[in-house]
Design a protein around this nucleic acid. Structure first.
Lengths: 332, 332
DNA sequence: ATGAAAGCGCTAACAC
DNA sequence: GTGTTAGCGCTTTCAT
């Protein structure tokens, strides 16, 4: 199946009239070679169309220049943007991104990590805090650079760049209460970070002497349609509800669609707060009040931290809190 | 930096009391080994926590079990969904996805392909038809399984799964004209597939004895904000316009926002047709008429075709037209 | 600054 | 069915 171009480093060496090792140096440590030999080598490379075999160099050097990343899914813009930023940052340094999806199955992660370790990835990027204790221990022991994202683990495996999902929930509680809402519910996916936001909301309400009306949950991945369904369930069970915090903007938009269809005015009858600030939030009518987190930037920062570590430097911070921003629009 | 777990196949062999090669067989071709030895090997693997080194096996077998994919960007849901489907399909067969972004720079592709070839990827997935002639020739010569997506190349490098962007434009022209529109413009990104849709629109209008009012373009990546800007430009230059076909739903939503802000009623004063059917299209008010393509399914099909080829089979079709669907909602 | 040579950890003949 | 052995194409001492 593979009739390889079969131009090897030894061919380049021969064509350039130098030793194999010199070609390797000219390519990888150009400073260690005289300008003339470098020129000869480069000429030979071009002439032969030589493309170094990275599988061989990975084996010989035990550095693959591959970074592995695990996301729950790519179909959600927010994680996709993080991967976009990460890939862009890594690409600038000659690293490549290898991607796997856990499909929101927490137990899948350990297996995917093993697969990456088998590939001898130079570093790992995870979504959320790694739960599997034995995987955590192993990564620590290996001293593999790891960045956990989209969360702020109390005791990270190694590094982390994210925000506090609990704080998000608490802040939303504060805002909603300040706006006079008293019957507040949560709509979201039954998934760990969404549940953290719910917990934060609940804690915030308790601090204000209130309690959560209810938390209606669906299996991820969530969607506008599920948001509609969740809102229908909520309205049936708790018609007195006067505000909902939604696990993400899709669910919020779905809730708004249900409200529009049933003449619940927004924000008069019902306040709606989303999460993630997708483009749709601004475009919705009324424009959705939501919480913005910078997914792309998170990926870029993760990339930077990893690259620093791979260069042998110590990044200035092992944990960076990117924070979040409450974006007040017209649904609250 | 890497204090390797250092458990090698030879360690497993020793622990299991068999030869190195037997371990390799037990792991890769379990059928070629007696159940007893297999059990011994598996026990040793578990006991030692052995994780096979894929960089070594890639080198030795010249099969990496890696598929490379290039997308313009991951930040656009539509390509992200294709990668989601692709990764899911490949994962089931033990292949991993390696991802790169061309950032809409056509010339970047050749370089990214080289990087993938250096990694000895077993197959390649491209977005759109590969333009670089020498890269095309090289891939053909290597007989590397390649799938081009999101387009229907007349002469694919190898395989393709997509739809005709020109046909999309032509169909939109037909619908708009049938709905009585006469002053039709295009708003989109200056990017190859978007331009194909514009060309199709233009051809369709000509067939109806009309001509395109204008095509307003922006540099990708496009966004709601750019859609708004594009619409402002259009309205200033051609106030008589009565319909716009937008290169994607974000631009369409932006155009609608401009229209709302300037009291151009939709669809009364202006018809708007989008492309890609993002969730936002249904949620918009009025709900956006658009063209649906199945990005995730495209990725899954691409994966299937690749896997068939990698198993040594010939896929039933080298080119599959996934078609598209005109979704009539309320903006036309 | 350059060259020679010994692996890196596995796969794939080929023997037995 | 299992073992032996020769590479896969690089990187990296160690000499020179």
């Amino acid at each position: 199946m593979k009739s390889r171009s079969t131009v090897r480093m030894s061919d380049v060496a021969e064509a350039a009239g130098v030793a194999l090792a010199t070609v390797s140096r000219a390519l990888n440590e150009p400073g260690k070679v005289t300008p003339e030999t470098r020129a000869q080598v480069e000429a030979a490379v071009r002439k032969l169309g030589y493309v170094p075999d990275r599988t061989a160099s990975s084996l010989a050097s035990s550095r693959s220049r591959i970074v592995g990343a695990i996301v729950p899914t790519l179909a959600n813009v927010w994680f996709a943007e993080t991967m976009e930023g990460l890939a862009a940052e890594l690409g600038r340094a000659g690293y490549q991104l290898m991607l796997s999806q856990s499909s929101y199955v927490p137990r899948a992660e350990a297996g995917l990590i093993d697969a990456f370790l088998g590939r001898r990835v130079d570093a790992l990027v995870l979504t959320g805090s790694l739960r599997d204790a034995s995987a955590r221990a192993r990564l620590r022991r290996m001293q593999l650079p790891v960045v956990e994202t989209w969360d702020l683990p109390a005791r990270p495996v190694d590094m982390a760049v994210g925000f506090s999902n609990e704080q998000v929930g608490a802040e939303v509680a504060r805002r909603l209460v300040a706006a006079g809402r008293r019957k507040i519910a949560f709509l979201g996916a039954d998934e760990v970070r969404s549940q953290m936001r719910r917990a934060g909301l609940e804690a915030g309400l308790q601090a204000a002497g209130l309690s959560l009306v209810t938390a209606e949950l669906v299996e991820p991945p969530s969607s506008i349609a599920l948001g509609r369904e969740l809102m229908a369930r909520l309205a049936a069970a708790h018609p007195q509800v006067d505000a909902v915090f939604c696990g993400n903007d899709f669910i919020a938009i779905g809730a708004m669609m249900w409200a529009r269809a049933h003449d619940w005015s927004i924000p008069g009858r019902l306040a709606v707060v989303g999460f993630s600030d997708l483009p749709v939030a601004e475009a919705a009518w009324p424009a959705l009040t939501t919480v913005r987190v910078r997914g792309g930037e998170m990926g870029r920062r993760a990339g930077e931290m990893l690259l620093a570590r791979l260069r042998g430097e110590e990044p200035p911070h092992k944990v960076v809190d990117m924070g979040f921003e409450f974006v007040e629009r017209s649904t609250m």
